[in-house]
């Protein structure tokens, strides 16, 4: 074995070692990435139509608070969650359902009857009766749910 061959052999081994290292790293790293981000990529569970209650409970012209229980499967745990929704109707036929979660940072807004406004206690965000932005740092109106009425029962589309 002359020097040249020796050199070649060592170059090969050197490259092969690096290659194996990269191979193993990838073999472990790629699944690891998939493993870590996997649940994040999962599509949010759709709940379909969630029954809120009878439409007769909705007061005309005043956002009315409804609560509904949903079962949410998170990972290996099934939680029963309560979602809270303000339902508003001006005429008793058309309903809008608004989430009570402030679009700013996710605090819970509350209806202040005297002022006819939603108020978020965290950073003084203010929404009007229909959820539109009035004041404060809020970026957009309150989120709305799709609503349907069947047999005088009020449903929202959960998601």
């Amino acid at each position: 074995m002359d020097d040249k061959q020796q050199l070649k052999r060592r170059d090969f081994m050197s490259i092969a070692t690096w290659a194996i290292g990269i191979l193993i790293g990838a073999g472990m790293g790629l699944p690891a990435i998939a493993y870590i981000i996997g649940p994040a990529l999962r599509e949010d569970e759709a709940f379909g139509w969630i029954r809120l209650g009878s439409i007769s409970k909705v007061e005309l012209g005043i956002p009315t608070l409804f609560k509904a229980k949903i079962e949410r499967q998170t990972g290996w745990i099934v939680n029963e969650e309560e979602i809270t929704v303000y339902v508003l109707t001006e005429n008793g036929r058309d309903f809008i359902a608004m989430s009570n979660i402030c679009t700013h940072l996710g605090c819970r807004v509350r209806w202040i009857k005297d002022q006819d406004q939603f108020f978020c206690p965290c950073h003084n965000g203010v929404f009007n009766k229909a959820g539109g932005v009035v004041a404060g740092p809020v970026p957009r109106p309150l989120d709305r749910f799709e609503v349907k009425v069947e047999d005088d029962q009020l449903f929202i589309l959960g998601g």
């Binding site: 472990m28 493993y35 996997g38 290996w76």
Partner: peptide
């Protein structure tokens, strides 16, 4: 309460979870 369910979750639900746990 949760150990078994979480291991099951890793093995069956998480992408490549079976591989990580198998390794």
């Amino acid at each position: 309460d949760q150990a078994y369910a979480s291991v099951q979750y890793i093995t069956t639900q998480v992408p490549a979870g079976w591989l990580i746990r198998g390794l």
